[in-house]
């Protein structure tokens, strides 16, 4: 569905995409993860033919991009990072007008409005102006709008950023529906739980290159120890120096919390017995641990 090879893109002195290779199989969900400024959005824009790369080749839905980007976009739905619903139209009109850009007739668009509104959970909002919608409603409408052309592939740039938990779960539910219909999903996110939940494969991108790729559970198995103990409280520094470092395979002190990664947490947990001033949390390693290990804890803004 999507094949990217040797993609490079430079803005002035800064090369934001530095040789990206990607393959996304039909009917799967692919997540492109990375800190702010990693080059995720630029990569997506190149894939859609909205930016011309400096070098590399892209094939989207069987068509070369950017050469036939417009034709490729006819088979693709896009959910952008920032809502660009048309504020001059109502909810239903937004769907109809958008279908017109795909060359659909008004009748063809109108025939789909009801199903798309059910999909978005907005059936009673058909005539509402856009400005009266909540953030979650706008996101769902944007997703429904992206479905107006019955796309084989959906591109989503941070589909749940800024949504409350209820709204996120609803969006995830809809995305799963689309997957069961056999569509291909390509999304960027910096929510690791979202990636772990939805994606068949993820690629972690940093400073313009992909630094790890695989199924979420593969990456966790491959990149990181299975158990994580988080410890915090008074006296954390001395405990970390004497016990934390010693009884874990990898550890770090981030702010006031020690993160200790190990295969067998038994010995480490025993050092905490009787230390009532320290609190600890034991959990399994997740994709976020992998992400932080690979991209570091430094802020990127």
């Amino acid at each position: 569905m999507l094949k990217v090879a040797g993609l490079r893109k430079r803005y002035g002195d800064l090369e934001v995409v530095r040789g990206v290779n990607l393959q996304v199989a039909s009917g799967t969900c692919f997540g492109l993860l990375g800190p702010n400024g990693a080059g995720k959005t630029t990569t997506l824009r190149c894939c859609l033919g909205l930016t011309t790369p400096d070098s590399g080749s892209i094939e989207l839905a069987g068509l070369p991009v950017p050469a036939q980007a417009r034709e490729a976009r006819a088979r693709v739905g896009v959910v952008p990072q920032f809502d660009n619903l048309d504020p001059d139209f109502t909810v239903a009109e937004n769907l109809i007008m958008y279908g017109r850009y795909f060359g659909l007739s008004r009748r063809e668009c109108e025939a789909q409005v009801e199903r798309l509104l059910v999909f978005a959970g907005l059936t009673d909002k058909a005539k509402a102006p856009i400005e009266t919608l909540s953030g979650g409603m706008k996101r769902r409408l944007t997703l429904a709008r992206a479905m107006i052309n019955d796309p084989q592939i959906l591109f989503m740039d941070e589909p749940t950023t800024g949504l409350d938990p209820q709204a996120r779960h609803l969006v995830w539910d809809r995305l799963k529906t689309l997957l069961t219909e056999g569509r291909t999903l390509i999304l960027t996110t910096h929510f690791m739980d979202e990636a772990q939940r939805l994606c068949d494969r993820v690629a972690i991108m940093d400073q313009g290159v992909i630094i790890a790729e695989g199924a979420p559970h593969e990456l966790i198995d491959r990149e990181i120890e299975p158990a994580v103990i988080e410890v915090y409280g008074d006296g954390i520094d001395s405990w970390f120096e004497t016990a934390g470092k010693r009884y874990s395979e990898r550890s770090e002190l981030a702010g006031d919390t020690a993160f200790c990664y190990c295969h067998d947490p038994g010995p480490l947990l025993r050092t905490l017995e009787g230390l009532s001033e320290l609190r600890s949390l034991r959990r399994s390693a997740n994709l976020e641990d992998v992400f932080l290990k690979l991209t570091g804890r430094d802020l990127r803004d």
């Binding site: 199903r115 999909f119 429904a144 052309n149 019955d150 796309p151 084989q152 529906t177």
Partner: peptide, 14 residues
């Protein structure tokens, strides 16, 4: 939920 739209791959391409 009905499938959102008909069969896959029939996107309009005039």
């Amino acid at each position: 939920l009905h499938p959102v739209v008909g069969a896959l791959g029939t996107s309009s391409e005039r």
